[in-house]
Design a binder for these strands. Sequence first.
DNA 1: ATAAGTTATGAGAACGTTCCCAAAGGCGTT
DNA 2: AACGCCTTTGGGAACGTTCTCATAACTTAT
Lengths: 332, 332
Amino acid sequence: MATIKELALKAGVSKSTVSRVINNDPNVKDETRKHVLKIIKELDYKPNILARSMVTGSLPIVLIIVGDIQNHYFAKTVVGIERELTERNYMAVVYNSMYDVEREKKFIRMAKESRFSGIIPMTAVKNDDLEACLEDIDCPVVLINKDLKRKSLDAVFGNDFEAGYLSTQELINNGHKHIAYISGPYKSTVSAERERGYREALKDNEIEIDENIIFRGKLDIQSGYEIGEEIFKNEKITAVSSNNFLMALGVHRCGKKLGKPVLGEFDIACNETVPELYEESGFIFAGSDLEAIGVKAAQFLMKRIEKSDEPIQKVIFSATRVVNPKAKALVL
Amino acid sequence: MATIKELALKAGVSKSTVSRVINNDPNVKDETRKHVLKIIKELDYKPNILARSMVTGSLPIVLIIVGDIQNHYFAKTVVGIERELTERNYMAVVYNSMYDVEREKKFIRMAKESRFSGIIPMTAVKNDDLEACLEDIDCPVVLINKDLKRKSLDAVFGNDFEAGYLSTQELINNGHKHIAYISGPYKSTVSAERERGYREALKDNEIEIDENIIFRGKLDIQSGYEIGEEIFKNEKITAVSSNNFLMALGVHRCGKKLGKPVLGEFDIACNETVPELYEESGFIFAGSDLEAIGVKAAQFLMKRIEKSDEPIQKVIFSATRVVNPKAKALVL
DNA sequence: ATAAGTTATGAGAACGTTCCCAAAGGCGTT
DNA sequence: AACGCCTTTGGGAACGTTCTCATAACTTAT
């Protein structure tokens, strides 16, 4: 593969001039530029990114750390990030931590060794751990659905409160009055916000909140199934809003198993967007556009990489209620 | 961040010696090694990967090109590849082509500019295109479920014939005699192999093949739904084996809509593995372990990167029939 | 025609490693 | 005591860029 030196030789100019042409430096005579460009084409010359990065100090690579790329939440967001970065000739390296904190820490450490241009940690590590890991990092970082205490960083959020509110409101619109809720782990702000949305929606519709039909699950199908058993014991309940999709699915399976009129008289909502596969499932779901969140995060990062001195920003993307016209026509 | 020069100064040795310690060169006195190691720890020194790559000529990065990371087939395989690479301190860059041939070509071109250590193109481009793109590539390449005509490369395959055979056999074991088949696009070898498995299984069980109940779909849910409508018109048919999961899902939805005894008397099988979510769905499915395929592909690549002169290899991973004990207990 | 100013070009250091080659030190053999 | 051999160390080129600074070439004003 041709180097800048060979190219310069063939073009009869110095390396410096070639470098200027490559980097669009205006201080080059038009004539010279054209000539060099011609030779570049002739030799099919591509600058060595490594050598360039060596002197500029950083690679055009952005590190993304996710819990599990098979999870829709991560996959969809990554698609957005990646699309935007590729557009600008940056690369995205995706690390799967498989929710292993030690692996995540290791990745962040590796990021320090390699001179990445930026990091988007969508990790599962607790915020305190994350904050410690990012302590002495010197490349731009953008957060997604996360906020740190001591360090202010650009961040992009989905609106979880809104998601909880909208899905619940939709259930109410459908005539439901006794709506159970399945929340997530205690500490998660995401879960808390979604639950708050549920509560607010009930209040705004003057429906009394019944703490006995607010459950707390472990986010997986099994957990949803077990809570479903509780829910279906209570004849009054005609709908459920779930923190997340998997638990909603568990309730659905449980209802089917018990022969309940699931997705007929009995409605199920969840407070996040779902894989496309499920968009016609008959579930109600509300959540923010993950791909858009990814794109925005990438844009933030690019700005920081380009040393913009805009003040730190946080963006919150509204949730929308997704109602597919075909929903209810098709069963899951 | 400390450089090797500073480190050498502080340790009172030359850069060369430090370099040797870092790279585990045996020609260093034990005493010296210990001392240097101590200073390395003290300064929290990490070698600059860029500088190293500059001289060795390639980055410890492997490029993976996929159609859409949200697709289970790609996601699961990538998890395997990534796990193995990370283990060996390599990085995986995943490019989503979104099935756009031009984007894929662009990615492969970019791969040539950057000095990647290797490429695993799981792309959707037609083999001829791929072959042309890889023509003058000089880094190791491993293929997954693909084979080229003019160029022999290490490759890892799932056993599609076996998948088709096993799932059909299972349907037969369940007492079905009139089993419809839904195949994929004409040209795909994957589809052809799975269909061949179906046919062989019928033959081996002395069931006559009825070409009228072998359908051809477009791989998506909608397509499966439409074919489902045909299938359920034919009262004789009591089971269906589908080339892929999405079409199987379409048949399922159609059956439910029509009030047929789907997954009760009527069985559905598909010839690939499915997202975990669906493993308890009650479908029968058979396919090769995608994660294992990914791991193997990464191992092949590492061998080539390390200049092994083993002859080119092709590995075929057997398909297994996945029967979950909870299947049938839970509905989809 | 010359000085001053502007534009275009080139020479060479720098980036942080690895790697080749030379040299120094230690040890055993004659 | 001299020689040779092995082990350990150091010096410095090389990798392919960018970037700073100096200088050459060209303008324009006097």
